[in-house]
Simulated scan of single mutants.
Amino acid sequence: MRDNEKDLSWWQTFKSVGAAFFGVQSSTNHKQDFNKGKPVQFILVGLVAVILFVMSLVLAVTFVMPA
């Protein structure tokens, strides 16, 4: 990485993980992620995204299934 390039912000990391989560990541963004991104950011945001996804599924099933 060159010194004049900034790392990805947390918001950019969140958007990138969201795009990858649904399989719509562009080639340009994919390259940018590998050049500017920090692995720790992607791991943390990915874990949060998976936890939120699982919690939303549990919540949806709770509302649909009779008690």
Rank of each mutant, 00 (worst) to 15 (best):
M1K: 01
M1T: 06
R2T: 14
R2S: 14
D3S: 12
D3Q: 10
N4R: 12
N4Y: 13
E5Y: 07
E5L: 15
K6C: 14
D7G: 09
L8Q: 00
L8N: 01
L8I: 01
W10Q: 12
W11M: 11
W11K: 11
F14N: 07
F14E: 13
K15L: 14
G18W: 00
A19S: 02
A20H: 04
F21A: 11
F21N: 08
F21S: 09
F21R: 06
F22C: 14
G23C: 06
G23D: 03
G23M: 04
G23S: 07
V24T: 13
S26G: 02
S26D: 01
S27K: 11
S27I: 11
T28W: 08
T28Q: 13
N29W: 06
N29M: 12
H30Y: 14
Q32A: 14
F34E: 12
F34A: 14
N35E: 15
N35P: 04
N35L: 15
K36Q: 13
K38M: 08
P39A: 15
V40C: 06
I43R: 07
I43W: 04
I43L: 13
L44E: 12
V45S: 05
G46M: 01
V48R: 11
V48K: 10
V48H: 10
A49Q: 05
A49N: 03
V50H: 05
V50Y: 05
L52F: 02
F53K: 06
V54D: 02
M55H: 04
M55L: 13
M55Y: 02
V58H: 04
L59Q: 03
L59Y: 00
L59F: 01
A60W: 06
A60Q: 08
T62M: 04
T62I: 05
F63L: 13
V64Q: 04
P66N: 10
P66A: 13
